[in-house]
Write a protein that binds this DNA or RNA. Structure first.
Lengths: 329, 329
DNA sequence: TTGAAAGCGTTACCAG
DNA sequence: CTGGTAACGCTTTCAA
């Protein structure tokens, strides 16, 4: 690896000059600039980011904290973050916390030790103190933490929409799945749906599902039909669970959506590939990731921020686990 | 942020001593050790990794290069890599190449600039020169590159198994989907299946699908039944495509697996949630990731390596898009 | 317009 | 057992 000194020597100038042309800072004669550029090319030199980072106390690194990249919702967020960071010359250090505060803290610490310029975190849980007085900006993604910048979807509204749509389409005995208590968006959805359901005249059951994993999803699906065999509408806590429920319903010989309607949350890519394709409340995950990255960059550059809490809209994606609405109903 | 000097001052010793207790290198009296530890705790000091990295020319960073984290196969690999790296104190810088050599090179360069100790790459394409004479170890994951360490599944055998099983279960007009030419595992699967099909007495069609994306998968599925409406067995290029085909077949009213058998590749988590659940050739993605991480660490530590090319076994996961084999057939 | 040199926070070597 | 100090590769004054 060539160093700046090698370049200086090759170009017959001082390291200071090389540094100047590298950073386009200060005056440097056009001729010497050319010589330096030439030398750089010859030696295939590229500056050592670590040395740079040490001197400036800065870097081109961003920390990305996810609960679990294996959950299909998060890769989309991650990709959104990465795509804009990449274009801006930032690289991501990433870690999965498994919603575990210790692991999370461990990552945050090493992020700091590596001079990251900011953090995007999708793992905040209420009460968590890991983010207290961090000297760098942090934006929460998919989650919120009071007072901190964040990008998230309107979960409550999503819940309302889900309940409204399923009722509008004729379900009379709705089962509402409540996601993990400590995951804010899950709680929001639940509350939104609960609000509408409570105010309606349909019967409904609430069933708690305290995880989102593939493994457990099957368990919830199974449990659901044992407990509430007569349910004719399910508002699932996310698309994975919804898919598991669809699977189980089909296995039990129920016709979808005639006997049973199902609405999921998230609109992960595979949801349109189930059969029948899943009706769901869509979160614009990729765009949320991008938005979060943009916000963080502004924060890092200390630019003026209009809104530091960005709420993204959710939409009902009508596919075929819900019936068509009867206009004359 | 406290520095080592602050700690030294607080403990009334020299930075050299602090460094010694930090790294447990060289002698230091138990009493002073305690004083230093105390000061470290008081100041909430933790060593600056950047300075460390600059001095040692090393770091605790690993580069991870993926084609696209949004494809559900890769998060599993990534998680495997991360889990063992995490335990060993390594952090990941990660990037998606989109199978684009320039983007790939860009990432590799910044990896180097950040002193990563090694790279795990799942994006190699034949002919790619981006990895030529890198001064650090690299292990290819899911791909191979002649001479370089790698961890991959036995795609060819997977293809053979898929063809054998589908024939054994009675398909007479098999459609074999050929994945992207430049993706080695896809090619291997294809060749393995082709080998068995060619040697059998069933008819078969070959259809080329040059991507693995969700978007395109639907297109292939559609095309398939237009071109080969009489096919009664599909060997898909991966589970995403298989799911899309299952979807389309169901949409067309075909009964699965009676009229049409489908076998996928990978066994991504959602494959067991389709209905009917997808029969597939499983790759142990998570374990492959772990294996790759372990191999890379050994390489970094310059430990003796038994095998630098690790082939992982594939297995037929019999679910319900294939019929039961007729023992008396 | 250019160069010398200090310093970013560590580690490792050499004396003592 | 401990301390002083050079060095890692870079950027940034300060002088020239």
């Amino acid at each position: 690896m060539a160093t700046i000194r090698d370049v200086a020597k090759a170009a017959g100038v001082s390291v200071a000059t090389v540094s100047r042309v590298l950073n386009e800072t200060g005056y440097v004669h056009e001729d010497t600039r050319k010589r330096v550029l030439e030398a750089i090319k010859q030696l295939d030199y590229s500056p050592n980011e670590v040395a740079r980072s040490l001197f400036k106390g800065e870097s081109r690194l961003i920390g990305l904290l996810l609960p679990d990249i294996t959950n299909p919702f998060f890769p989309q967020l991650a990709r959104g973050v990465e795509d804009v960071m990449q274009k801006q010359g930032f690289r991501l250090i990433f870690g999965n916390s498994d919603e575990n505060a210790e692991k999370e803290l461990d990552y945050i610490n090493t992020f700091m030790q590596n001079h990251v310029m900011g953090i995007v975190s999708a793992t905040y849980k209420p009460g968590n103190t890991n983010y207290r007085n961090l000297p760098i900006p942090i934006v929460f993604l998919d989650r919120t933490s009071d007072g901190n910048p964040s990008v998230y979807a309107d979960g409550k509204e999503g819940g309302r929409i889900a309940a409204t749509e399923i009722i509008k389409r004729g379900s009379k005995r709705v089962t509402l799945l409540k996601g993990p208590e400590h995951i804010r968006p899950a709680l929001d959805r639940f509350q939104g749906a609960l609000e509408v359901l409570s105010g309606s005249k349909v019967d409904f059951y609430v069933m708690t599902t305290n995880s989102f994993s593939f493994q457990d999803a099957k368990k919830w699906a199974n449990e659901l039909f044992v407990k509430y065999p007569d349910t004719d509408g399910v508002i699932a806590s996310n698309d994975i669970v919804a898919t598991a429920i669809l699977h189980e319903a089909l296995r039990l010989g129920k016709s979808i959506p005639q006997e049973l309607q199902i609405i999921g949350f998230d609109d992960i890519p595979q949801s349109s590939l189930s059969f029948p394709p899943l009706s769901t409340i869509r979160q614009p995950a990729y765009d949320m990731g991008k938005e979060a990255a943009r916000l963080l960059i502004k924060l890092i550059k200390k630019e003026k921020i209009k809104k530091k809490n960005i709420q993204m809209p959710v939409t009902f994606v009508e596919r075929n686990t819900t019936r068509e609405v009867d206009e004359h109903g």
